[in-house]
Design a protein around this nucleic acid. Sequence first.
DNA 1: AATATAACGTTTCATTTGAAACGATAAAAC
DNA 2: GTTTTATCGTTTCAAATGAAACGTTATATT
Lengths: 158, 158
Amino acid sequence: MPPDLQLNRFLPYRLNILSKKVSLALATRYQERFGLSIPEWRVFATLGQEQPLSSNDIVERTAMDKAKVSRAVNRLVAAGLLDRQAHPRDQRLLRLSFSPRGRDLYAQVAREALAWEGQLLSVLTDTERAQLWALMEKLERRVAEEIPASVSLSDSLD
Amino acid sequence: MPPDLQLNRFLPYRLNILSKKVSLALATRYQERFGLSIPEWRVFATLGQEQPLSSNDIVERTAMDKAKVSRAVNRLVAAGLLDRQAHPRDQRLLRLSFSPRGRDLYAQVAREALAWEGQLLSVLTDTERAQLWALMEKLERRVAEEIPASVSLSDSLD
DNA sequence: AATATAACGTTTCATTTGAAACGATAAAAC
DNA sequence: GTTTTATCGTTTCAAATGAAACGTTATATT
């Protein structure tokens, strides 16, 4: 008897679809309004958390691979949105930070991203939001144990 | 004052990371054990739900674009895992179904996928699982309203 | 019926991707 | 202090990607 795999009740599948829809809806906005690609937005948002960061810091925080980060950073620097300096004590590292224009743009994009998230989450009560975070954290911890140590998160996924 | 966007409390970001980890953990298994790429596995799993299907049916059900589906189907047919016939009443459509070997392989892969999902979900109680489905469904319905009609889900995402 | 329009799946082609090689710098081993 | 090993970021190159063009078949319009 074949196993009964119901795709629309299969967590990896549903998670992929939901994540894709959310990313797409949001990406459409900041691409059209701010001219940022997804990798660029991710670099940007990461620097919004903490500055300065090296490229490698961004790789670790975003699960993008280092070539992709390198390219996104180069585009942002070329666009005058980031400043790139050498780290004074370790010449291998970059010290990436917002330029004045970058900081302004970040403020705009972040404001809009938060507003958008608010609209999305408005279908959930406070209790449900708390549940959502708790569930996602449990799953994330569990799946981290499942991932073979040899595999990098930044590996290709489809 | 800049908006306070905490990335690890920003749903699109966390959803992306979780989905990526889950897909990666699972993909690693069926790539190594069964030689299936992610697009191939998705075609396979879709046919596991219902047979026969046209390529276009698979496009709609998986949110992959039609070129990707075309390629995955061709590889699976070449590997002797799928049968491809012309639809009797509409020559434009394919009638895709498992070959005998494909059906056997699907049974194996599906069994393993379900077992793996079971391990993942074992960190949640029955109540929590029910919550998870309910929350994901609410979010998915909400985000569907947000996506501009002009944008296709199968568009590039990163 | 003849013509125009639309739908399906493949192919083409320019772009994106990421694994691996690379040069440059720093840390570790000896 | 010299040599080896490791780390950081860029570049290279082959493979994957998807938008658009295409050939084929079906449907709509006239």
